[in-house]
């Protein structure tokens, strides 16, 4: 209880429109992935957990503190929004110092933490640069640093790797994994590879609902027997895309090796049952929950 987030039967509305439906979720210490398409409700859930949105009903406790106690929640929560920026003319260390002051950290302590965090996110050599001079990846790392300033028990990061180059993405994921050793880290993303590389537990969301929750291995287990590899002549690709959920196409000389998701064994010559990867398992999860999946459909 003291080291977990518990959400019970939580609903959230924007005006009359329901955005989250009966969310039940328990999140323990470590990295937790929240996977879903754009518009699935991930950001709404993240903001609700960061006490930036108000739930309609249900219960949420963060490390034993009810979400209604906003000030206490903000003391133990670090939040990195999907879209953020900082005052462009502030220097990197100055921005951290300012946000640290807003968190009520005493001056001397703030100085030490800013120093340590800049080092941790590899921005020490850029500390005197203005925010507007930082690259996208640097800004993201600075974002993590600001979220960790007050040493929160919970770190909520919303789509942090979107728009980063592969090297920055890997560096960022590793940083999150490091941070997650001592706290709950919730990583919201629509990029399956980010979850695959860093999370043990995850939940899949769509249209404001939790479709699935559990470990990555459980999700892979669930998809077992539904992922096939088949060699298809290029001229039949359009038909294959129409009839199946295609999760991967590897072009060969005269044919393509295609990975497809299917409830039953596909009526295709050479179709071979394959070990599911997380991407395929995610697509199968969406498909098996009745979501419209357009994998490969043109």
């Amino acid at each position: 209880m003291e080291n977990s987030i518990v959400i019970k039967n939580m609903n959230k509305y924007y005006g009359k429109k329901q955005a989250l439906f009966n969310i039940d979720l328990t999140i323990e210490k470590g990295m937790f992935g929240l996977l879903g398409r754009n518009g699935a409700g991930k950001t709404t859930l993240m903001k609700t957990l960061a006490a930036l949105h108000k739930k309609k009903n249900g219960e949420i406790t963060v490390c034993g503190i009810p979400i209604e106690k906003e000030k206490e929640i903000r003391t133990i929560t670090g939040y990195l929004p999907q879209e953020f920026s900082m005052y462009p003319n502030m220097k990197t260390d100055e921005a951290l110092d300012y946000l640290g002051a807003l968190s009520g950290i005493p001056k001397e302590e703030r100085k030490k933490r800013v120093e340590a965090l800049l080092n941790k996110v590899n921005l020490t050599q850029h500390r005197h640069k203005k925010i507007k001079e930082l690259s996208g990846g640097m800004k993201r790392r600075l974002g993590i640093a600001q979220a960790l300033l007050h040493e929160p028990k919970v770190l909520i990061v919303d789509e942090p790797t979107a728009g980063l180059d592969p090297e920055e993405r890997i560096r960022f994921r590793n940083l999150l994994c490091e941070v997650a050793e001592q706290r709950i880290v919730i990583l919201s993303t629509h990029i399956v590879a980010d979850i695959e590389a860093s999370c043990e537990q995850l939940a899949i969301m769509d249209s404001g609902k939790i479709l699935w929750k559990g470990s990555v291995s459980q999700l892979l287990e669930k998809a077992k027997g539904h992922i096939y590899t088949v060699n298809v002549e290029k001229q039949f690709m359009a038909q294959i895309k129409k009839e199946y959920i295609v999760t991967g196409i590897l072009p060969q000389n005269e044919y393509n090796t295609v990975r497809i998701v299917s409830d039953a064994e596909p009526d295709l010559p050479n179709a071979v049952l394959s070990d599911p990867d997380l991407e395929g398992a995610y697509m199968y999860c969406l498909h098996s929950n009745g979501c419209e999946v357009k994998g490969g459909d043109e």
Binding site: K47, A50, A51, L52, K71, R74, T75, T77, G78, Y79, P81, E83, F84, S85, M86, Y87, P88, L99, L102, S103, G104, Q146, H150
Partner: peptide, 21 residues
């Protein structure tokens, strides 16, 4: 400026009280 600079949520999520800020 907070909203224009997309800074609002970073500030909102700090523990400082609204009245003090």
């Amino acid at each position: 400026a907070d909203r224009r600079r997309r800074m609002s949520e970073l500030v909102y999520s700090r523990s400082i009280s609204s009245f003090k800020l």
